[in-house]
């Protein structure tokens, strides 16, 4: 019994599958048929449209119009009147009475720029862009050749400026005679030694024996001095100055007179050899 029922089930399944298969086949046929029909309709309509074209075209020749035409041109005054008329100004209305000349100028500038860049499709846009590009390149190259530094343009400006004061002491503007006399009166001998040294530097600079620069050290001036007569003396007074000024050595009156004499001797040598 079981075997029979199994066989029946199998048969039913086979029949069902066969039925499904037939259904799929049928729908495929329908689809193909509809495609073919559509193709035929398209072919027919195309051939009918071709056949509708006459095999030979007959052109009709129209009679030439020989009547005299006169071109009417509006007069200049009329055109100016039209242009000034508010009715024909469709753009931005310019209230010339109320606006100041500055506002009107700005508006016209904006309008002019607006016309230049009315859109990427506008031929004037690309033309203007190329001109601007070429001009920028020329300006950049020229400035670069001139050695202009552009780094400051795109670098954030340093707001933290130098918080110290540069002395900017110019040896050419110091009144040495009075300054030395004042320092000596106040018994500020260290300062007096410093002033004598600056005076010596000025004398050498005046005779173009050294080139005075704020960044140069005393030793630089010693090496710079070419005169074999002056150099040992200058080296000696430089040493005196360095010990008194940088070394903070106390200088009493007796020591000061000795140092002062050395400076005066050197000054005389400069005058003699300069």
């Amino acid at each position: 019994m079981e075997n029979i029922s199994k066989k029946n089930n199998c048969r039913q399944t086979i029949v069902r599958r066969k039925g499904e298969h037939c259904q799929i086949k049928r729908s495929n046929y329908r689809l193909t048929l509809s495609k073919v029909a559509l193709f035929c309709v398209l072919i027919c309509s195309f051939t009918s449209s071709i056949s509708a074209i006459p095999s030979k075209i007959h052109y009709q020749t129209l009679a030439q119009d020989s009547t005299n035409t006169t071109i009417r041109k509006p007069s200049e005054s009329e055109m100016t009147a039209f242009k000034k008329s508010k009715d024909y100004q469709y753009g931005v209305e310019e209230s010339q009475v109320l606006d100041t000349w500055w506002k009107r100028l700005l508006r016209r500038l904006f309008n002019w720029f607006g016309n230049l860049f009315t859109g990427v499709g506008n031929p004037t846009f690309w033309k203007t862009a190329v001109y601007i590009f070429v001009a920028s390149v020329v300006v950049y190259v020229t400035l670069k050749l001139m050695g202009v530094d552009f780094s400051g343009l795109y670098r954030k400006k340093n707001t933290n400026e130098i918080p110290y004061e540069t002395l900017g002491e110019n040896i050419h503007t110091i009144d040495f005679i009075n300054s030395i006399a004042e320092a000596t009166t106040q018994k500020n001998y260290r300062l007096a030694v410093r002033l004598y040294y600056l005076k010596a530097l000025k004398e050498l600079t005046d005779r173009e024996m050294i080139d005075w620069r704020i960044n140069k050290t005393n030793r630089s001036y010693v090496y710079e001095l070419n005169s074999p007569i002056l150099r040992p003396d200058f080296e000696y007074i430089t040493r005196q100055f360095e010990y008194a000024w940088y070394g903070d050595f106390p200088v009493d009156e007796e020591q000061f007179i000795s140092i002062k004499n050395q400076f005066l001797t050197f000054s005389n040598s400069v005058f003699a050899n300069g």
Binding site: E169, R194, N215, T217, N218, W245
Partner: peptide
Amino acid sequence: ILQKIEVPR
């Protein structure tokens, strides 16, 4: 930088 700064004297 050294060229820019004044030597104390």
